[in-house]
Write a protein that binds this DNA or RNA. Sequence first.
DNA 1: TTGTAGGCGTTATCAT
DNA 2: ATGATAACGCCTACAA
Lengths: 338, 338
Amino acid sequence: MSRKRRGIGRVTQATVAQLAGVSSMTVSRYFNQPERVNEEHRARIAAAVAQTGYVPNLAAGGLASARGRIVAMVVPNISGPIFAPTLQAFSAALEAEGYQVLLASSYFDEQKEEHAVRAFLGWAPAALVLTSRFHSAATESMLAAAQVPLVETWDYCPERAPVQVGFSHRAVGEQGAAYLHARGYRRATFVLNSATGDHSALERCEGFCQAFEALGGQAGRYVPGVELAPFDAGKAALLALMQASSPPQAVFFANDNLAAGGLLAAARAGISVPGQCAILGFGDYPFAQMLLPSLSSIRPPAQAIGEQAARWVLEEIAGRASGQPARLECEVVGRESA
Amino acid sequence: MSRKRRGIGRVTQATVAQLAGVSSMTVSRYFNQPERVNEEHRARIAAAVAQTGYVPNLAAGGLASARGRIVAMVVPNISGPIFAPTLQAFSAALEAEGYQVLLASSYFDEQKEEHAVRAFLGWAPAALVLTSRFHSAATESMLAAAQVPLVETWDYCPERAPVQVGFSHRAVGEQGAAYLHARGYRRATFVLNSATGDHSALERCEGFCQAFEALGGQAGRYVPGVELAPFDAGKAALLALMQASSPPQAVFFANDNLAAGGLLAAARAGISVPGQCAILGFGDYPFAQMLLPSLSSIRPPAQAIGEQAARWVLEEIAGRASGQPARLECEVVGRESA
DNA sequence: TTGTAGGCGTTATCAT
DNA sequence: ATGATAACGCCTACAA
């Protein structure tokens, strides 16, 4: 590609305007407020557009209007099953309004999140959506300097300044405790995520342990080795726990990947689930219903979070900032494993 | 004369330049070619940047340099397990070079793909990456008009003009046929995807049927109802097939979601797998190893596709276009189910 | 090594 | 309803 001179041969608004015999402003209006353009001109412009294959340059438009049609979002894992419904709902709502959604994964790493936020800020986004309320100091100060509307999702902490759209992870732990206690289990262990940096899992754990003991149960926690993939970590955890002198009657895993590992390890080891050991997960991943026994799990309001966040962003952009935090609820999905 | 300026109060290159006592060009160089800036100036600029929290506006930069640092990619499903490794590898490679990756899902719908491509073209991307070689006529003509480097992934068809990075779906069908035949199965059925528009699944099916019969086997095909989710479609398909007068000895599902449904339906119905019916999937989704019996599947080179595509894009941008298509191979992962 | 002039493709603003 | 003009924030080209 030898593009010595800039913008040579490129089809621009001016090209179309000339072909249609109007000024470039009319072409601009044709795209942004068609009803304000004479019908005959509209037809001529449409023809010129079709003939040239002209596509408006959004970067230039955003620059000129100081209203970039970009919204950026950072999630722990774009491809993971948990955030999928959030992403879909959020993207769908914003793309319908003509916004482009910029996505990045943080992999539960504050450095990666910081990097993504810095890159995003360069695009002068109309809004920024983060996951959880834990960020590096540098991220916080960048966000403070940039005057960009910000939402934090998958968490709920009304004291914080950025608007929150999510749920309380402590409450999830408490829900799990209540559920397991109600099913008759009195000795239970919470297995944390092997991915360090998942602060939310720690909160679920604390909520669980506290609530379970308050109910008169005996709660423990297990920390897998960080070098293991979640599925393998879950396997190892379950086997280690069941070999103890006084094994738990129920295990609450920080997510469904871990839980699936536990489930399979139990099956292979001849440990009956839920007879000898009940298993509860978190996330309600699509495969939870595919397992045998099917996996009981706690389902986060993933789609609702995406919808609410999108609504908030659009309101904020439109100027009518009804910036109220939204507290949503998780739901225990009881299946066979617990 | 109008004092109502548009970007008032915004921190720009000029703000930093003034603070550092240099011209804005020097600030520009500070970011793009730091080694060409006097060390003392560098320090002063760094201080000014830190003080103001300045972040260069990438849209403006791209506009001015006619070298937008954006690359766009359309996949059938951002959040699905299949394309995850491709996405990750691709994004990682390009973000390392300072590019932003714009993502969209087509959900196997050519209209949605067309919409995404149109939106992307507006950002004047440095390159465009699509999945499969099937696009709407309008998409094709837009792509022809826009002079944007284009790669097609997850397919391989060297006759086509856009560079291909992927594998032959026919060959996957043939691999499945050879595998099942070698394991002794002589009557087998291919179950198509319930999502219409998945042309690749159809190609796998055709490759399978042809090869399986060439080997002396008896091949059939089953088309699930479009209204069913993949998992449920898989369940229904297996039950329907096994109720036939002469049920298949093996079933090859178009993807692992369908296969998981088949596996579970068999278990619930007391049909032994692989004893009464072997099950083979495609995609090697992460949960394949979590199922009981574990799911045999064909693993696509998802990560390699992402890496190759990224390499090609970077070469193309750099000008040294070694635009060779890359044919990669899938691998049969034999587990318990077949 | 640094600065000046001008333009990238679009839209806000004001005038007709 | 339409057009002329001046930004938007940055970078290429060239001059100093």
